[in-house]
Design a protein around this nucleic acid. Structure first.
Length: 560
RNA sequence: UGGGGCAUGGUGCAAUGGCAGCACACCAGCCUUUGGAGCUGUGGAUCUUGGUUCGAAUCCAGGUGCCCCAGCCA
C-alpha cells in the first residue's frame, strides 16, 4: 500500500449510513463481496463535486476488500467525447483513485439489446409510435394519472419486428421509442411506461455507426450494474425516485440485483457546480478556460496549487449524509492551508513594492542572510538570502500615519526585517501627488540576524527583497469568483454576481531562489500566502498563482 | 392538491432510549524572528405540538418548512 493510500484509509471513518448499510449487507449475506462503480458521463471535466461521489465509491469498495470499476456512462452520443474520457481518468488518477478496470456503458449495448428483447417477448415492453408531444401530453401530471398509449397493446411479434427495424435504422430519429410497460397511473412518474430506447442517427465515440438506437439512463445503468456484478450502486439524491424503476427492470429480468443507495451531493458556497453553468463561464470568457484557477474543476484547482491531499481531507471532513447541504469554501481553504503549512518551503516575495533605502548601510555591500526554509519541518534546512542597501518592502507594511495597533514601519518606528536587521524609519520621499515613493531608514548593525544584543524587542517583523538581487515576477491574486454565497439564488442569474475583483495581476519581486522555479511547485510567501508556479512562467518572468492567503488577523483588526 | 426524501450551533457532520459532541467559522487570551503556525478558553443548536418512558435529538401521532420528480438528458 502506498503512503497516499494509507492516508486515505486512516482518515476515513466508516461511520456514515452508506458504510453501515454495506456492512449490514455483508453481515446478513445479501452480498458476499463489495463492488462499486464510478459512473461519470464523458461530457465535461471533473469538478470538486465529483470528488465526493468518487471517494465514496472508491473507499466503500476498498474498505471492504472489494473493487471499483470506472464505467463511463456513454449512452448519449450527441454529448459525449473521447477527449473527456482521458481528462476524467487523468483527474481521477491525480486524486489517487485506483480502479480494477475501465468499462463503458457502450460495451454492453449488444447484451442490453438482448435483454430488451426478453422484456418485449415477456410482454413487458412495447414500441410506441406516438410523437414526443403525444408522449408528454399522455404522461399526465404530478397530480393526474397518464393515459395509455394507443400502441400499448401491440402484440409481441409486431413489437419485435418494429424494435428490430428501429435498430436497423429504418425509421427517422425520434419516430418511435421502446417503452417499458408498467403503469400509466403510477404516482411515481418514472414508472409511467418509461422510455428504454430512442432512435438517434448519431455516430458514437466508441461504437461508431453501428447503432441507430441508444438506451436511456434508466434502462442502461442498473442493467450494466448487474452485468458487472456491482453490489452497491451509490448515487445522488435525485435518483431516489428512480430506484423503483431500477429494481423493476432487474426483477422482470430476474438477474443479479445490486442495491442502489442515494446520498446528498456536494455543494459549495461562492461557486457553481453545474456543467452547463461552468461551460458558460468558459464560453463567454468570464474565465480563461476550464483550468482557470478560479474554476471549481480539478484541473483548475491543481493549477491553482491545491493538493490532492487537501481536497481529499476536505471531502472527508464534509462527511456523507442525506441532508441537502452547502459546504463552506472556508473549510476547503483551511484544509489546504493545513497541508501547505506543513509541506511548503518559505520564500520572500514582495507583491506591491515600496522602495526602502537604508542610509547608513554601506553602498556596495551585500550580505547573505540565513533563512529557514520551513519552520514546521527543520529538515528542510536553510538558505541564504542576499541583503543590501536598497530593498523592497510591501506597501502595506508602511504607513505614514499609523492607525491604532499598527506595529509595522512608520516614521520613528523600528521593525525587524526578517532574518536581517532592525531598521528604523527616518523620513520619506513623496512624488508630486503626495504619494510616498521612497522610505528612508537606518539599520542597527548590532541586530544582525534579527535579534538585538541589548535584548531590545520590536513588535513587528516584515519581509523584504534586496532590490539589486530581486527577480521580477507576475503574481496572480485570486479571490472567489462570485460575490454571493449562493450565486444561483434569486432571479438575476449567476453571471450577475461575478466578482469583478476575482483576479488581480501584480508585478512584484521575488527573492533569487524563486528566479526560475519548477512549474507546479508550491511555496509559502512569508506573511502573504501560498503560491503555485503557473505554466505561463517564462525564463524571464516566473508567474505565481495565489492558492490561498495566510490567515490575516491584521485586516480583521483594521476593519473594526 | 400526487409520489419520494430531509430537518441538530453560522456551516458541515456525530450522538443508533442514558451527561448533545467534533471540525470549520466566530470571539477572547497566551506564545511567536511570519499579525502565519501552535496552545488555552468563551459564546452559541436538537423545526413545532402532543404522546410513550424513570429518562427522547433518537420511539409514536399530528403540524410546519425545505429539496427532488411531469427529457426520446444523466
Amino acid at each position: 500500500m502506498s503512503p497516499e493510500e494509507e492516508i486515505i484509509l486512516k482518515d476515513s471513518k466508516p461511520t456514515d449510513f452508506i458504510r453501515e448499510a454495506v456492512a449490514e449487507d455483508l453481515k446478513n449475506g445479501r452480498f458476499k463481496n463489495v463492488r462499486t462503480r464510478l459512473p461519470p458521463e464523458p461530457n465535461g471535466y471533473l469538478h470538486i463535486g465529483h470528488v465526493k461521489a468518487f471517494m465514496i465509491d472508491y473507499l466503500v469498495a476498498k474498505e471492504n476488500g472489494g473493487e471499483l470499476i470506472l464505467r463511463f456512462d456513454d449512452t448519449n452520443p450527441t454529448k459525449e467525447e473521447t477527449e473527456f474520457v482521458e481528462a476524467i481518468e487523468e483527474d481521477a488518477r491525480w486524486l489517487g483513485i485506483k480502479w480494477a478496470k475501465v468499462t463503458f456503458a457502450s460495451d454492453y449495448f449488444d447484451e442490453l439489446y438482448e435483454w430488451a428483447k426478453k422484456l418485449v417477448l415477456a410482454g413487458k415492453a412495447y414500441v410506441d409510435d406516438q410523437t414526443q408531444e403525444e408522449v408528454i401530453a399522455n404522461r399526465g401530471t404530478l397530480t393526474e394519472p397518464g393515459k395509455n398509449s394507443p400502441y400499448r397493446d401491440r402484440d409481441v411479434e409486431e413489437n419485435m419486428d418494429l424494435l428490430e427495424r428501429m435498430k436497423d435504422g429504418e425509421f427517422p430519429a425520434g419516430a418511435r421509442i421502446l417503452r417499458a410497460k408498467i403503469d400509466m397511473a403510477h404516482p411515481n412518474i418514472n414508472m409511467r411506461d418509461p422510455a428504454m430506447y430512442r432512435i438517434l442517427h448519431e455516430p458514437h465515440h466508441r461504437t461508431g455507426d453501428k447503432w441507430k438506437i441508444y438506451p436511456l439512463y434508466d434502462w442502461s445503468h442498473g442493467q450494466n450494474d448487474s452485468m458487472e456484478g456491482v453490489t452497491h450502486s451509490l448515487c445522488s439524491l435525485e435518483y431516489e425516485n428512480h430506484r423503483p424503476l431500477y429494481e423493476w427492470f432487474l426483477d422482470q429480468l430476474n438477474v443479479f440485483k445490486p442495491r442502489q443507495i442515494e446520498f446528498a451531493r456536494l455543494n459549495m458556497n461562492y461557486t457553481v457546480m453545474h456543467k452547463r453553468k461552468l461551460r458558460r463561464l468558459v464560453e463567454e470568457n468570464h474565465v480563461s478556460g476550464w483550468d482557470d484557477p478560479r474554476m471549481p474543476t480539478l484541473r483548475a484547482m491543481r493549477r491553482r496549487g491545491y493538493t490532492a491531499e487537501a481536497i481529499l481531507d476536505f471531502i472527508n471532513r464534509v462527511g456523507v449524509a442525506k441532508n441537502y447541504s452547502v459546504s463552506d469554501v472556508a473549510l476547503l481553504e483551511s484544509c489546504v492551508r493545513e497541508d501547505l503549512n506543513k509541506n511548503s518551503l518559505r520564500r520572500m516575495a514582495v507583491l506591491k513594492p515600496l522602495k526602502v533605502v537604508i542610509d547608513n548601510y554601506p553602498e556596495d555591500q551585500t550580505e547573505e542572510m540565513d533563512a529557514i526554509n520551513n519552520p514546521e519541518y527543520p529538515n528542510a534546512g536553510t538558505r541564504q538570502v542576499p541583503f543590501s542597501k536598497v530593498i523592497y518592502i510591501e506597501q502595506d507594511d508602511f504607513r505614514e500615519t499609523p492607525p491604532p495597533k499598527y506595529y509595522r514601519l512608520f516614521p520613528g518606528n523600528e521593525v525587524r526585517l526578517r532574518y536581517a536587521y532592525f531598521i528604523k524609519c527616518t523620513h520619506v520621499v513623496k512624488d508630486d501627488k503626495g504619494e510616498v515613493i521612497e522610505v528612508h531608514a537606518t539599520y542597527d548593525p548590532a541586530t544582525q540576524g534579527g535579534s538585538a544584543s541589548d535584548g531590545r524587542k520590536v513588535k513587528s517583523t516584515i519581509h523584504w527583497v534586496s532590490a539589486k538581487h530581486a527577480k521580477e515576477a507576475e503574481i496572480r491574486m485570486y479571490d472567489r469568483l462570485f460575490t454571493k454565497e449562493d450565486p444561483e439564488e434569486g432571479d438575476e442569474g449567476f453571471l450577475n454576481c461575478l466578482n469583478p475583483n476575482s483576479l488581480e495581476i501584480l508585478t512584484g519581486f521575488v527573492e533569487p531562489h524563486l528566479a526560475s522555479p519548477e512549474i507546479g511547485s508550491r511555496f509559502q510567501f512569508e506573511r502573504l500566502g501560498y503560491f503555485c508556479v503557473d505554466k505561463d512562467s517564462t525564463k524571464e518572468k516566473p508567474v505565481f498563482n495565489l492558492t490561498v492567503n495566510l490567515k490575516d488577523t491584521w485586516t480583521k483588526i483594521e476593519k473594526r
